[in-house]
């Protein structure tokens, strides 16, 4: 539920494209076909596989997903852009989502966000730090409002109770 990140290039040279869905990844996707009555229902899981493999959802992957799931690329793109966790552009090595919704806001989330922007050198929301290390975005309620301020790093590490005081130490874990 983050704001979309507008930076980088949406296209990579076609020659460099190595398909995502081959070998083990393709087998994993095909195993999912057993769990749903339609191939379309495997779309969100397939997009997660792309993002895990490549860090974002490149144009070529949209075509690949469309082909394996027997959908059109336009349809797949329509779904990708609905969900805020799918990146339609490359992001920094570490992608940080900081909750600033009211319950966290009451407990200082905006100060925490400012501290994180400063420590990462990102300066502005949605941009990547000059060293390519971090991208920081605001996210709406992470469902952990009793532990202000929660952050989610790299779609994997959910960290509670981040404050301006402990932010630098937490970020240091992400080289």
């Amino acid at each position: 539920m983050t704001d979309r990140v507008e930076q980088g290039t949406a296209r990579e040279p076609a020659a460099a494209w190595e398909p995502v869905f081959q070998g083990e990844t393709l087998a994993r996707l095909k195993a999912l076909f057993e769990k749903y009555p339609t191939k379309r229902a495997c779309l969100l899981p397939a997009l997660w596989m792309v993002q895990e493999a490549r860090g974002w959802i490149p144009e070529q992957a949209i075509g690949e997903v469309a082909e394996v799931l027997e959908l059109t690329p336009a349809y797949v793109k329509g779904v990708v852009t609905f969900y805020t966790m799918y990146h339609t552009h490359p992001v920094g090595r570490h992608f940080i989502q900081v909750c600033t919704t009211s319950p966290c806001g009451l407990c200082g989330a905006e100060d925490t966000l400012r501290a994180i922007l400063r420590e990462t050198g990102c300066g502005e929301l949605g941009t990547t730090s000059p060293d390519g290390r971090f991208t920081v975005v605001e996210v709406e309620c992470l469902g952990a409002c009793g532990f202000p301020t929660p952050i989610l790093v790299d779609d994997a590490d959910f960290i509670e109770s981040v404050t301006p005081a402990n932010a630098a130490g937490i970020l240091a874990r992400y080289p």
Binding site: M1, K35, L44, W48, Y83, T84, V139
Partner: peptide, 12 residues
């Protein structure tokens, strides 16, 4: 009885 987990992708 099957239980299948499905992961969302960011949308209240």
């Amino acid at each position: 009885i099957e239980v299948i987990l499905h992961r969302g992708a960011g949308a209240y």
